[in-house]
Amino acid sequence: MDSIEEIDLINLIEKMFDEPAPGLALGIGDDCAAIRPATGFETLITTDTLVEGTHFKRDLTTPDSLGRKSVCVSLSDISAMGGRPKFLLLSINISKDINKTWIVKYLHGFKAMAKRYDCRLIGGNITRSRNLSFTVTALGEVSKGFRIDRSGAMPGDLVFVTGSPGDSALGLDLLNRRGANYTSGERKLIARHQKPEARVEWGQILSSGRIASSMIDISDGLALDLKRVLKASCVGAVVELSRFPLSTEAGKIVKANGAKAWRRILSGGEDYELLFTAPPAKLKALDRFQKSGKIKAVRIGEIVKGKGHLTIIKPEGGELKIKKEGWLYNQQ
């Protein structure tokens, strides 16, 4: 096994990631990084941890994909507030069975995703641990007055979602069955789980165009994350599944499994799509962005009175009850 010492890994990371960036005064190599906040902007800061056995299984992904996903998870939070990603910090807890080949592939995936969104790794930490884990802190910026919070939804606003939520959870289900001969549609679901995208450009459009009144990224399940918006905004919502943007393969699974599949789609999480609300007066502006291909979003419901109350209407009518609304660490 080609093991790697801490100092060698630090040197490798410095070589791979030490590069200049606007607003970066001092990067990797000192006790701290130093950044210059831009005038007229607010700084956004978020952190997320991926722990083996809790958030991922090594035999169900690749190190490259895991590196990409580590970046996506945190940048999705930046996008949910309409921000632009700038800098990343990475802390790695390395278990003894991780070798140099594996970690290099992880770092290449990490760098590729960071480059995709034009942000820089500026520091972090490395230690040995029983369990493999990665903690990423992301820093971004948003123009003052343009930040989108969870707390801005109002009765009468419409509820929108980007992409096709639920694909990631269905892809994970396929992986857990340990199959080998997947159809092309099933492989698309698996890719949505292993290689998610942060909707950074879309979040910036919703912010700069002042379209969204509230927003959150779907990380823990659409139902649970929507509930968080409702609680923060002191409102309720009605979601109509007849409007829901299912992918072709997800549609087949819903047709075969009905309410069970819908519950999985609404509670599975790890979609990293954007869930947002917008007043009817903003529909024309949103439609212009849709027609130009700059964003893909579908209306799925409406904000109503009633703090935190969510009603989900099945395509055929009647309410769909969901006992487990999303992913919570103490329920796993």
Results as ranks from 00 to 15, higher is better:
residue 54 T to A: 12
residue 53 G to S: 10
residue 85 P to I: 03
residue 37 P to H: 00
residue 140 G to M: 06
residue 294 K to H: 11
residue 247 S to K: 14
residue 105 K to T: 08
residue 27 G to S: 13
residue 91 S to H: 04
residue 308 G to D: 08
residue 213 S to W: 14
residue 95 S to F: 05
residue 282 K to R: 10
residue 26 L to D: 00
residue 68 R to N: 02
residue 74 S to V: 12
residue 120 R to I: 02
residue 173 D to G: 11
residue 163 G to A: 13
residue 199 R to F: 15
residue 30 D to I: 00
residue 264 R to D: 10
residue 122 I to V: 15
residue 25 A to K: 15
residue 54 T to F: 07
residue 143 S to N: 12
residue 54 T to G: 02
residue 207 S to L: 09
residue 119 C to I: 05
residue 218 I to Q: 04
residue 149 D to M: 02
residue 258 G to L: 13
residue 193 H to V: 04
residue 101 T to P: 00
residue 161 V to H: 07
residue 165 P to W: 12
residue 326 G to P: 05
residue 47 T to A: 03
residue 225 D to N: 14
residue 133 S to A: 15
residue 161 V to D: 07
residue 67 G to S: 05
residue 229 V to E: 07
residue 295 I to G: 04
residue 332 Q to S: 15
residue 131 N to G: 03
residue 120 R to W: 09
residue 148 I to Q: 06
residue 94 I to C: 10
residue 177 R to P: 00
residue 275 L to C: 14
residue 330 N to S: 06
residue 159 V to P: 01
residue 274 L to H: 05
residue 168 S to P: 05
residue 33 A to R: 04
residue 246 L to T: 13
residue 49 T to H: 03
residue 329 Y to Q: 07
residue 57 K to S: 11
residue 270 E to R: 04
residue 24 L to M: 10
residue 63 P to L: 10
residue 308 G to Q: 10
residue 283 L to Y: 14
residue 296 K to R: 14
residue 315 P to N: 12
residue 2 D to Q: 11
residue 204 Q to F: 01
residue 30 D to F: 11
residue 53 G to Q: 10
residue 292 S to V: 15
residue 138 A to F: 05
residue 273 E to K: 01
residue 289 F to E: 12
residue 321 K to V: 14
residue 142 V to Q: 08
residue 237 A to C: 14
residue 172 L to Q: 14
residue 187 R to Y: 09
residue 113 M to W: 01
residue 161 V to P: 03
residue 238 V to M: 08
residue 241 L to C: 13
residue 32 C to W: 13
residue 245 P to D: 06
residue 128 R to K: 06
residue 94 I to H: 06
residue 276 F to C: 02
residue 57 K to D: 10
residue 64 D to C: 03
residue 306 G to C: 10
residue 321 K to Y: 14
residue 50 L to H: 08
residue 209 G to A: 14
residue 51 V to Q: 09
residue 181 N to L: 12
residue 214 S to H: 11
residue 75 L to Y: 01
residue 96 K to Y: 01
residue 149 D to W: 04
residue 306 G to W: 11
residue 126 I to Y: 13
residue 288 R to C: 05
residue 236 G to K: 02
residue 40 G to R: 03
residue 97 D to H: 02
residue 87 F to E: 02
residue 26 L to E: 06
residue 118 D to H: 07
residue 263 R to W: 04
residue 106 Y to A: 01
residue 294 K to C: 05
residue 294 K to L: 12
residue 104 V to F: 03
residue 178 R to K: 11
residue 307 K to R: 14
residue 249 E to W: 13
residue 27 G to A: 08
residue 89 L to M: 10
residue 43 T to V: 13
